[in-house]
Each structure stands twice: as structure tokens, then as C-alpha cells.
Design a binder for these strands. Structure first.
Length: 501
DNA sequence: ATGTAC
């Protein structure tokens, strides 16, 4: 058996692309890293593996804590991490969801081709930049009063439909039809609502962006057909989250949980993993608040998408419907969700990890996906009807120099990863280091001259932080996902125009 | 990720 030791952590190779950190000490389950040797080397460069090991200490963990091929260090719990805890006897951890609740990506199709936009990149990038709010701070496409924010938190994209910012087909092509029913707006603090109310329909900063892309390749033609994708087609990618509202909600509940559940906190190897025991008042409140933030982020992406339709209609002087600008799908990267999965159990029926399980039984779990994407296969009842025969679409954004992928949920995802796969290329270096290595203006010029990619950003520093060189190889990440059959390649895209904070 | 810190 191949073994590796990285910073004192021993990994055993279970099979190709599957590495296991065996259970020892206070670990409740083993941990697994899904990676090629090259990606494992990069994952081992920061605290990711220690954080993954720490995550196995959370009460109620089932089967394995998992790190995706794009994993890197995060707050307490790795970005690219999946951890499923028993929803009855386990816990829920805000750090295992992330600060940017329902940070995610949606892709909108068009019937335009690269020929239609080539030569008009400048015009498009300027029009989008002028009409889609971006950067830190306030200002969104709609002004949210008290009633608006409550409606958004409670009803998600249903609110957008009522307000004229969505069409019914948008709901049909979004997880949960764009509305998480467990949302509890009363569990979201006034401070969080105040931060969010003037950020409805705004990109934010950091790695968030809006990109016009062209499809360069398709791989599984039956699935590509079902998704309405073909080479040379123009698509639009929107990557953003729940802005200050989700961030404040995470902060609020981390503080409350640290204070109320200090005993549980003391049993964990890292304070940043703070968790509320399943069934406690704070677990319920956090779940309700997080679901409300999920609704907010879905509306955020919906408003931006609809604004992009309006911009295209103006630039191309025709209706957005005539350009077939329909939502392909919207995926969440940072959420915990109650889902039923088969997990290993001991003879008394309690969830247990690794090879010690006597049997496997269905359990309701909090599936924490932090920088990881749901990847349900064909036939799963939660996959929208339009895609149920082929599996759910998965959108993997790469860097602005490398392009992105569309995958479909693979047949092995339910067995290997609680129905999950990677979420992007994954960072190779910190933002601070990126700013030492790159200069925004230079990055921008090179992308334009060498790659014909037009970038416009509020801040040059953001361009440096997001330079193509700060990301892992998205082709390699996707190759591992495809080889493990957790998310299978359907299409590859390449950037045309990119706007960001 | 983020009114880039209580």
C-alpha cells in the first residue's frame, strides 16, 4: 500500500485518487482526501490536512470527513471540505459552512455564438460593469426596504418572481426552486438585515465575478444536449454569495455558540470548529438563519442574472427571450443541508466511521459542504425534472485565464462523497501572497493581449488576488472528479469578458 | 468571503 506522510499526518492510499487518514485518538471517523499525487502535494502545503483531521472530531460525524481535489485551508474547516453529521445526535457547525453562506455559481445559456460578441467585448464589459454593482460596500440592483428583505429571506426566488425579476423557468432550474423552506428570517439579526438590504443584486469582491464565456468543448453529447450546450455558444457565469448578510449571520452564531456550548467547544481541537449540538435551540436557530441566507444569495444571483438579460437586450437591441437567455442551473458552495444518506452504523445502529461499520442504514444528516458542490446523479428525486434523466448540472469555475467546466452528478457520488464534488480550481496561495507576486494592471494587460480576455474590476488589488497563477489547475481537479465518477465532464468554457469587485 | 478589527 502506498503511504504518504505530510507534516506528521499519515495518509494511506485506498485506491487511485483516494487517500485516507486512519482513525486514531479522538477522531470519530477517518478522513479522506480525493486527489492525484500532484494535487495532494498542493493540498499538503497549508493547514488543510490538519483541519480535515480536526473536523473528524465533530460530534455525530459519519463515514468520513472528505477533502475535495481543490481543497485548501479555511476558517476551522477546509474549503473543499464535506462533513456529514447525524441530524439527531450530531451537531451543526457554522465554520463548516463558511462565512459566505450560499456562495455559489449560476450559469445562464444564450443562443449567441462567439462570432456575435467578438469585437464587442469592450462595449459589453463596460455595459455590464456600469449596470451590475460590484465591490465592497453597499448598492444593489434593487433598494431593499424592510418588507423586501423579509420577503427575500422568507421566500427566496419566489419573491423575485412576484417582483418581476424572474420568470417561472428560472425557478424550475434552481435547487429547491430557489426557495429553502426551512428559512427562519426571525433568526437573522437586525444588524445582518441592515447590512444586506442595500446589497441585493451585487457581486461583492474577492473571487466573485461575472463572466461572459464561450463553450469550447463538450464531452458527453447526450448530457450536453439535455443542458442545451454546444461548442462556440456564449454563456454567462455569475459567482457571488450572501454578502454582508451571510457574513454577519455566521459571525453572530459563532459568538452565540461559543458562549452557549463552551463544553462542546472545549472537546474540539480548534475553536474555529465551534458547533451547536443537534436539537439545541441554537442549532435550530442557526439552521433557520442559514437557510434564510441561502434564499438571499439565490435572489442575489437571480437579480444579477436578470440585469444581465437587460444589458444584453440593450447592447444587441433585441429581447433577451429571443437570445434564449435561460438559467442552466445554480449551485451552492457553502451550505449545510438536511439530507438522508446511507451511513455506516454499529450493531446498536449508531453511526460509525470507516471499516468498523456492521451495517449501513439511512439517516438524516446535516451535510456540510464548504467549498464543495452537491452532485446528485441521474434518478435522484431532488434533481430538477428537466435534468433527472442525466443528473444535476455542476458548475466548476476556474480562473479567468483557464476557464471553467460544466459537470453532471456522477453515479458514485452518493457512495463516496454524500453526493458532492469539487467547487472550483482552489487557491494555491493566500491573497496576501498573491498581491506580492502579481500586479493587477499587468495581469489585466496580459490576459487581454495573450488570451483575448477582457477584464474590468473596481480594484487592481482584486485582479492581483485573482490572477490565474494563484489557482490550482482546474483541468486536474476536474480530471479527478471525472475519474472517481462523482462529477463527470460535460462541457468546458473559456472566458471572454470578466467583471469583478 | 467581509463596512479586510473589539
Amino acid at each position: 500500500m502506498t503511504t504518504r506522510e505530510i507534516d506528521g499526518i499519515r495518509l494511506e492510499q485506498v485506491r487511485e485518487y483516494v487517500w485516507e487518514i486512519p482513525q486514531e485518538g479522538e477522531m470519530r471517523v477517518p478522513a479522506r482526501v480525493l486527489a492525484s499525487e500532484a494535487l495532494l502535494d498542493e493540498i499538503g502545503d497549508d493547514k488543510t490536512l490538519q483541519q480535515l483531521k480536526n473536523a473528524t472530531h465533530l460530534p455525530g460525524m459519519t463515514d468520513h470527513a472528505i477533502c475535495m481535489p481543490d481543497g485548501h485551508q479555511g476558517y476551522g474547516f477546509p474549503v473543499g471540505g464535506v462533513g456529514a453529521t447525524d441530524a439527531e445526535n450530531g451537531c451543526i457547525s457554522p465554520g463548516a459552512v463558511g462565512y459566505d453562506i450560499n456562495c455559489g455559481v449560476r450559469m445562464m445559456r444564450t443562443n449567441l455564438t462567439y462570432d456575435d460578441v467578438q469585437g464587442r467585448e469592450e462595449e459589453l464589459v463596460e455595459a455590464l460593469f456600469a449596470n451590475v454593482p460590484s465591490g465592497l460596500g453597499g448598492g444593489g440592483v434593487v433598494d431593499g426596504d424592510k418588507e423586501t428583505i423579509e420577503g427575500v429571506l422568507e421566500r427566496g426566488v419566489d419573491w423575485a418572481l412576484e417582483a418581476g425579476w424572474a420568470v417561472p423557468a428560472d425557478l424550475e432550474h434552481c435547487e429547491d426552486e430557489g426557495r429553502r423552506p426551512d428559512a427562519d428570517p426571525s433568526a437573522v439579526s437586525q444588524k445582518a438585515k441592515d447590512r444586506g438590504k442595500n446589497q441585493l443584486g451585487s457581486l461583492g469582491s474577492g473571487n466573485h465575478f461575472l463572466e461572459i464565456q464561450r463553450v469550447t468543448d463538450t464531452y458527453r453529447d447526450d448530457v450536453a444536449d439535455a443542458y442545451g450546450l454546444e461548442p462556440d455558444q456564449i454563456v454567462v457565469l455569475i459567482h457571488c454569495g450572501s454578502r454582508g448578510l451571510g457574513h454577519q449571520t455566521c459571525t453572530d452564531y459563532l459568538r452565540k455558540i461559543e458562549k452557549e456550548h463552551g463544553d462542546l467547544l472545549d472537546s474540539l481541537p480548534d475553536k474555529e470548529l465551534a458547533a451547536a449540538p443537534a436539537g439545541s435551540e441554537l442549532a435550530e436557530a442557526y439552521y433557520g438563519a442559514m437557510c434564510a441566507c441561502i434564499n438571499f444569495a439565490w435572489v442575489n444571483r437571480q437579480l444579477i442574472m436578470h440585469r444581465v438579460r437587460q444589458v444584453f437586450a440593450r447592447v444587441f437591441d433585441r429581447s433577451w427571450e429571443s437570445m434564449d437567455m435561460h438559467l442552466l442551473y445554480d449551485v451552492a458552495h457553502n451550505i449545510a443541508k438536511k439530507e438522508v444518506h446511507e451511513v455506516g452504523v454499529d450493531p446498536e445502529g449508531r453511526p460509525i466511521g470507516g471499516g468498523d461499520a456492521a451495517d449501513r442504514e439511512e439517516r438524516e444528516l446535516y451535510v456540510h459542504r464548504k467549498g464543495a458542490t452537491r452532485a446528485f446523479p441521474a434518478g435522484h428525486p431532488e434533481v430538477p425534472a428537466a435534468y433527472r434523466d442525466v443528473g444535476q448540472p455542476i458548475i466548476i469555475p476556474g480562473s479567468m485565464g483557464a476557464g471553467s467546466y460544466v459537470l453532471r452528478g456522477g453515479e458514485s457520488s452518493l457512495d463516496l462523497t454524500f453526493g458532492s464534488t469539487a467547487h472550483g480550481a482552489g487557491r494555491l496561495m493566500s491573497r496576501t501572497q498573491a498581491k506580492q507576486e502579481f500586479w493587477g494592471e499587468t495581469v489585466q494587460d496580459e490576459l487581454r493581449e495573450q488570451n483575448q480576455v477582457y477584464v474590468k474590476a473596481q480594484s487592481g488589488a482584486t485582479v492581483a488576488e485573482e490572477a490565474p497563477g494563484v489557482y490550482k489547475d482546474v483541468d486536474e481537479v476536474v480530471r479527478v472528479s471525472d475519474a472517481l465518477d462523482i462529477g463527470d465532464k460535460v462541457a468546458r468554457t473559456y472566458p471572454v469578458c470578466n467583471i469583478k469587485g
